[in-house]
Design a protein around this nucleic acid. Sequence first.
DNA 1: CTTATATAATACCTAGAGGTATCATTTATG
DNA 2: CATAAATGATACCTCTAGGTATTATATAAG
Lengths: 148, 148
Amino acid sequence: MKFNKTTEYAFRILSYMAIEESRSYSVDEIFEKLHIPYRYLRKLMTNLSKSNFLYSIQGKNGGYKISGKLEDIKLLNLIEVVDPDYLVSNCFFGIENCSRESTCIMHDQWDGVRTHINTILANTSLADIKQGNNQNKIVLNTFHSLKT
Amino acid sequence: MKFNKTTEYAFRILSYMAIEESRSYSVDEIFEKLHIPYRYLRKLMTNLSKSNFLYSIQGKNGGYKISGKLEDIKLLNLIEVVDPDYLVSNCFFGIENCSRESTCIMHDQWDGVRTHINTILANTSLADIKQGNNQNKIVLNTFHSLKT
DNA sequence: CTTATATAATACCTAGAGGTATCATTTATG
DNA sequence: CATAAATGATACCTCTAGGTATTATATAAG
């Protein structure tokens, strides 16, 4: 039931950058704080700016900023871009033609789970995460990793 | 949130074999009814009998039978064997040291989802699936595939 | 205008889940 | 007891998410 790595990374990156939403963050800084493989992080940051969650400032003293208001960026929006397959209505049994006309026995229950997850993701914005962050919750780990 | 292929296969196999719980099923028959890659299915059947959900009858006219009572075999038992990682309490953000002492902001909500899924899996036995099967629900698809 | 420091683009590598292929073993039956 | 029809064991192949490496481009600032 867990997300793929890329989604976890994206969630952590944006959650971290939400702490001081208006300033810019370099890849190096994010790398120091979150522990995401350096070069993969670079690639992911580029993707996140291509998909307009961030915008990039190139050249010396460059970096990335969150684009848009925190309360408008829901986790659901992120996962839609980063792992669009995640919320596709897959049949519990993996049956291809399990649809509304003739559903498998687990269909309704599984739909309940899907809705549950969907609701959480749709109702949690970066603003919510930022706020939770001020209540001795951790959003990120502070491991220090080495560049590779 | 979806299961891996092997889990889906295992669910379908056992659900199918529950229809006539007391007779034996050959790999060939299961292959004809469910559409699971033939040789992978063979391997999986052997694993399922090694882990005692099935027992195998070797030699001519051989096959597999479900071992034990349908109501005692919960989907949870199956997934525990076939994909033990699935229900491990992974942090929402993939943070390694997110634990009870200091949890991430999504911890409780994510735990709710985990419990939801867990409850479904723990409360659904092969007997339940068999019963649902008698109410114009599909448990299996009837595609006919070719051996490879 | 050169240099240092940042991101962008692109191509390649790797491990593991899923899938194949081959040969060995068991056993019912003529 | 020979054969056919089943499962068992084992080794290999393949595709993709995740991870690396290298080169190109942008820009602040001395």
